[in-house]
Amino acid sequence: MTDHIIQQVQVHLPNIPLEVVSQGAEALVFQTSVHPYYSKPCLPHQDKFIIKFRPRKPYRHPKIDAAITKNRTIGEVKFMAKLTKLGIKAPSVILADFPNGIIWMEYLGKKLPNGDVSSLKNWLWYYEKVLADESLCLGSEVQQACINVGLLIGKLHLNDMIHGDLTSSNILLEDSEPVLIDFGLSSYSGMAEDKAVDLYVLERAMLSTHSKYSDHYVKWLLQGYEQIHGSKEFRSGGKKLVETLRKLDEVRLRGRKRSMLG
């Protein structure tokens, strides 16, 4: 299944070596060692790059498919460019081919001692399962990292941007500084409900992936989230925080965004 998709993308990327990193419902992510146009880019990693590819979907009418592929790719690049402009850490875009659904972006993350990439998930799992060290899991390093993640998400929300798919796999750690990735489901919204759902999705994801200590992690996340709302940088942060947290309680009770209409 993956092979014919790789063939599809290789047509648009001749002579570019591709290594599959992950496969989602909508896109494939590859890693490559070749930069498309410059050998010494202004990026921390100069020997590794990421290519995200949205393949054709055979079930869609070709016109609809072409429009979606193009618009989603544009939307994702726009979102990432805006984040960079706002100083919110996200991968930088290197190149894009909108009609073919291809985005080249910078490689982020380091290799953990066990070889996995430094997503929040892998890092916590490393402490939880590989080292199985509770004092590390509940120590100040993890605490600070979670607080930083909360600060980052708070900043995102204060700019009325919604990630749309917050999980511990979509947060990378570059030297304990968190970076958000994967904006395929991202959107813009000032509504407390949408921000609450964004947080709720993360909460649930933490619970299911890191059940043992997730209450601590989430507590620290929210701590960071609250902290940034109090910052002078953002007007009426306090008010927005109250609204979002109130909605979060509602969403938690409901279990989902909306009550059914029958």
Binding site: I74, V77, A81, T84, V93, A96
Partner: peptide
């Protein structure tokens, strides 16, 4: 550089 390239791409 990063921001300008982003703007050109978009």
């Amino acid at each position: 550089t990063r921001l300008a390239i982003g703007a050109c791409i978009l």
